[in-house]
Design a protein around this nucleic acid. Sequence first.
RNA 1: UCAGGAGUUUAUGU
Length: 244
Amino acid sequence: EVTYSLLITSNVKQGNAENALELYQDMQSFDIIPSNFTCSSLLSLYYKNGNYSKALSLFSKMERCKIPADEVIYGLLIRIYGKLGLYEDAEKTFEEAEQLGLLSDEKTYTTMAQVHLMAGDCTKALKYMELMRSRNISLSRFAYTVLLKCYVIKGDLGSAELTFQSLSRTGLPDAVSCNDMLSMYANQGLLEKAKSFILKIRKKNVVFDEELCRTVMKVYAKEGMLEEVDHLIQDLIGNVPLGN
RNA sequence: UCAGGAGUUUAUGU
């Protein structure tokens, strides 16, 4: 099992879905019972590929075979229910994990928050972030990005800015969060703020990605700053893998 | 087995 587990996990990580599934087939033909680690890798593979029904059937198989579900598995299950729009099932799963004392990881809370964000329900999402805080689970960088997203969707500028500051305190802000902030400014018509934000992040040498470039250009275009757009493109050629 | 789960979402335009 250990060997298969290792192989499957590394194949999933590298995106070799076919290899991973083949290995799993092998395991089954040898009647080797997969560990929860193997199952989580497979579940995440199904999740990524949108094979939610396979994911669910693997989960029921786990129950049948008495493979214990751990916190990671619960997290995945919550995510899968979220993708299927089964928010109540997602919440029930969360509560079940709670009952079993499987809520020690920050990721599980952020997962639940993200599921609600998918549905655009930032109030519920924030509830889980609060719950996490109330239990003294410290926020990782990633948790800050999720929290930021909550406020951006909510349109709560002040809280978003504070969260962005907290995020920045832990290191260079990432392109996705910068894009969230910038889009927020742009959508609210706060173009001056948007422009100074762009200057700020460029000064900090934030690593731009394609989406962020797009938003920056959109702001410049709205302001008629065509030369800036030119400069930006010049600067970024070679730095960013531009698709188009 | 220092082993497994995470965020921009289908654009733009008059």
